[in-house]
Amino acid sequence: MASLLEVHDLTKSFGGFSALNHIDLVVHRGERLGLIGPNGSGKTTLINCITGVLRPDRGRIYFDGEEITSLASFRIARAGIARSFQIPRPFRSMTVLENLCIPLRFAAAVKMRSTELEAAAREILELIGLGDKATASPLDLTQIEMRKMELSRALASRPRLLILDEVMAGLASSELDEMLAIFHILSGQGITIIMIEHILRAVMNFSQRLVVLDAGRKIADGSPGDVIKNPQVEKAYLGE
């Protein structure tokens, strides 16, 4: 399989705290990758470096063969990397539909008329199951609907790589299955997905490969079955 995303020797510290320590990571085209690790292990920092929100201290990041290490966030989004935020960050002054129109217009860079744009946004909302909330304000959404909106908005930029940062936290069991089904559909459409998740059932069901971070280091990388039996991983989660 050809690689879509390559991270080489990525290092990032905040003052004296080193959040990422010489991380190497390869994500293949069309892959479903699970990224796990205890709280504070550097998962979100890694995502922030990949999406240009934070600038790494050293290391390089390549997407589809092009270096994206020092690119501005909006260029990375246009190149085809979309993310959801762990704590939802909606555009509060806009409706749900208008929230989706921003990435459709700015990241997917589709020169569509506004009616076509809205139709495309509605299509995504229907797929995610938010069709009846199109004209609602994000402030009136429940926590779960808000997460679905985050996911819809990430999809609206028509990404080739979708990074889901704990998009399923707080979901009931049936909703979890519903979301996983959606992710499998997206994966089937050829979108490469990195899933950060604490709900082990979801990650194990979804991932073809599992990467584990602990205290800013990568401690495991392999098939979910093997990784979960790895003694280092056990130690990271349960202590000695």
Binding site: A72, F74, A82, F85, P90, S93, M94, I102, F106
Partner: peptide, 25 residues
């Protein structure tokens, strides 16, 4: 205009705007 909608996205959340393709600066 789209210029104005981009500005509104920046006002609401600058990081989210940038990650959704808005040329913030």
């Amino acid at each position: 205009s789209w210029f104005g909608r981009g500005l509104a996205a920046i006002r609401d959340d600058e990081v989210a705007a940038a990650c959704n393709g808005v040329p913030v600066l």
